[in-house]
Amino acid sequence: MTIDVAAARRPDVKALSRVLGRAFFDDPVMMWMVPDDARRTSALPRIFAAMTRHHFLAGEAVEVAGRAGKVGAAALWDPPGRWKTTTREDLAMMPSFLLAMRGEAKRGMEVSELMKEHHPEEPHWYLAVIGSDPDVRGAGFGQALMASRLDRCDAEGAPAYLESTKESNVGYYLRFGFEVTGELTVPGGGPTMWQMWRAPR
């Protein structure tokens, strides 16, 4: 069956945030930010929903991949020049973040600040989040999402940037033309992230 890629709308937020929550359950950064498994299960969809609703949708670069009307994967992109959240967006997201993170909010802020500090300034498309539901992983949903946006990057002559939060995913992104440009390690025994940049083709 065909995998359909489409721009996400507000009614898609619940489904895509649930998919991303499942996709990132075993992610090293998310596990460090929310160590308790049970709490992480409920926290991650809330975090992704807040990010999507209050920041990413306005950039009109959120995409979902689905089959037979069911979302299997999602990607949260920022267009060139839009990767920084505004004060208004931060304030809108804060209640959901605090509720989700509870006593671990400081860890989330440490990760966010580290990423912002080392984010490239050259205009680019920023792939902030991409993930597939574990039930469909390996079935081509993520590949369909990557191809959809990277084709546009190439048509515009624009580079793309991401941080891989799993070392095992670095090879996956290399196949799409990304190259490792640096490593970010969260202080105090935190996880490592791999900065990756893709020149347009």
Score class of each variant (00 low, 15 high):
residue 163 E to W: 01
residue 13 V to T: 07
residue 23 A to E: 09
residue 61 A to W: 10
residue 69 G to N: 10
residue 5 V to M: 06
residue 10 R to T: 07
residue 115 M to H: 11
residue 95 P to D: 01
residue 185 T to S: 15
residue 114 L to S: 15
residue 73 A to W: 01
residue 154 D to G: 00
residue 14 K to T: 02
residue 171 G to S: 06
residue 156 E to C: 04
residue 103 G to F: 07
residue 83 W to Q: 12
residue 91 L to S: 05
residue 45 P to D: 10
residue 148 S to A: 10
residue 138 G to C: 10
residue 109 M to Y: 13
residue 85 T to Q: 09
residue 63 E to V: 03
residue 54 H to K: 14
residue 75 A to L: 03
residue 17 S to F: 10
residue 190 G to M: 14
residue 104 E to V: 04
residue 79 P to K: 12
residue 181 T to L: 09
residue 47 I to Q: 09
residue 189 G to L: 13
residue 45 P to I: 06
residue 102 R to T: 03
residue 120 P to R: 07
residue 20 L to H: 12
residue 52 T to L: 08
residue 187 P to D: 01
residue 72 G to I: 00
residue 187 P to C: 09
residue 142 G to C: 05
residue 3 I to A: 00
residue 64 V to Y: 05
residue 164 S to L: 03
residue 119 H to P: 00
residue 166 K to P: 01
residue 107 R to G: 15
residue 173 Y to S: 11
residue 179 E to W: 03
residue 87 T to W: 11
residue 113 E to L: 13
residue 90 D to T: 06
residue 70 K to Y: 09
residue 105 A to E: 02
residue 90 D to M: 12
residue 87 T to F: 09
residue 165 T to S: 15
residue 198 R to Y: 12
residue 97 F to W: 07
residue 171 G to F: 07
residue 56 F to S: 05
residue 140 G to N: 02
residue 119 H to D: 07
residue 100 A to D: 04
residue 81 G to F: 10
residue 111 V to N: 13
residue 190 G to T: 13
residue 17 S to W: 07
residue 144 A to G: 03
residue 112 S to L: 13
residue 20 L to S: 14
residue 201 R to I: 15
residue 167 E to I: 05
residue 67 R to E: 11
residue 102 R to N: 12
residue 81 G to C: 13
